[in-house]
Amino acid sequence: MTDPYWNHNVQHHPAVLAAVPDGCRTALDAGCGDGLLARKLAARSASVTGVDRSPEMIELARGHAGVPGNVTYLEADYLADGALPESAYDSSARSPWCTTRRSRRRSPASPGSPRPAVVW
């Protein structure tokens, strides 16, 4: 997939994609924004959830013409209790903008995942 634009996050996408374990069943893109990384993750995982607390960004992500069928976008605060099932993802990615002390206490990645979280 050719990147339609460049920013600080996009430059790290190749490293994030390379860190997704082979045979990944479920991937999470926390703070997915317009969904670019989630769409890329779709080629490396059977199912991808992109989550963002901005309704405008989720609307933009859902409205993109090239959303693969294995990608779901969810408007939610991924740090909120109950927003996402705990231990449901083989791989998760989030940008430093989403990294807080609270987010390090709770991981949506499955226990024993080879590479449960990628933070760039």
Rank of each mutant, 00 (worst) to 15 (best):
L37F: 02
R106W: 05
D22M: 03
P96G: 04
G35Y: 08
E56Q: 12
L60M: 10
G31F: 07
V67G: 09
N9I: 04
M57N: 11
T99K: 03
S91Y: 14
R39C: 13
A19L: 08
P114A: 14
A109Y: 05
S87E: 14
S110A: 15
V10N: 04
V48C: 02
H8V: 15
T49V: 15
S47V: 07
R104M: 11
V51W: 12
A93D: 01
G50C: 07
E59Y: 01
G66Y: 00
M57K: 13
R39N: 09
P55R: 10
E86G: 10
A117M: 06
S107G: 08
P116F: 00
T72A: 12
G63P: 07
T2F: 11
I58W: 02
V20Q: 00
N70S: 14
Y5L: 13
A43N: 05
R53N: 14
A117K: 06
D77H: 10
V67M: 13
D3G: 00
L41Y: 08
G35M: 07
G35K: 06
E56D: 14
P21I: 08
S92I: 01
P55I: 08
Y89E: 03
N9E: 13
S54V: 07
A30P: 04
S91L: 09
D3W: 09
P114I: 01
W6N: 11
A76P: 08
C24D: 10
I58M: 07
A18T: 09
A46N: 06
L74P: 08
P96N: 12
P55H: 13
S103A: 15
M1I: 08
D90W: 06
G50F: 03
N9S: 13
A38I: 11
L84A: 06
D90R: 08
N70Y: 04
V118Y: 15
D22E: 14
T100K: 03
R39T: 13
S113V: 10
D52P: 10
A88C: 07
A38S: 15
L60R: 14
T2I: 15
L37Y: 00
V16W: 01
I58K: 05
G33Y: 01
G69D: 15
T72N: 09
H12T: 12
E59H: 11
A42F: 02
A117D: 11
V16N: 00
L79S: 11
H64A: 15
E86K: 10
R25N: 01
A27F: 01
L37V: 10
S45I: 05
D90I: 12
M57T: 11
S103T: 14
R62S: 05
D3I: 02
Y5I: 07
N7P: 05
P4R: 13
E86Y: 02
G112V: 06
T26Y: 08
L36F: 11
L41P: 01
A46D: 14
S45P: 04
E75L: 10
S110D: 05
V20I: 12
T2W: 09
L37E: 05
P114Q: 12
R53F: 15
V67I: 10
Y73L: 11
L79E: 13
H13P: 01
P14L: 00
D81T: 13
P4A: 08
A42N: 02
L84V: 04
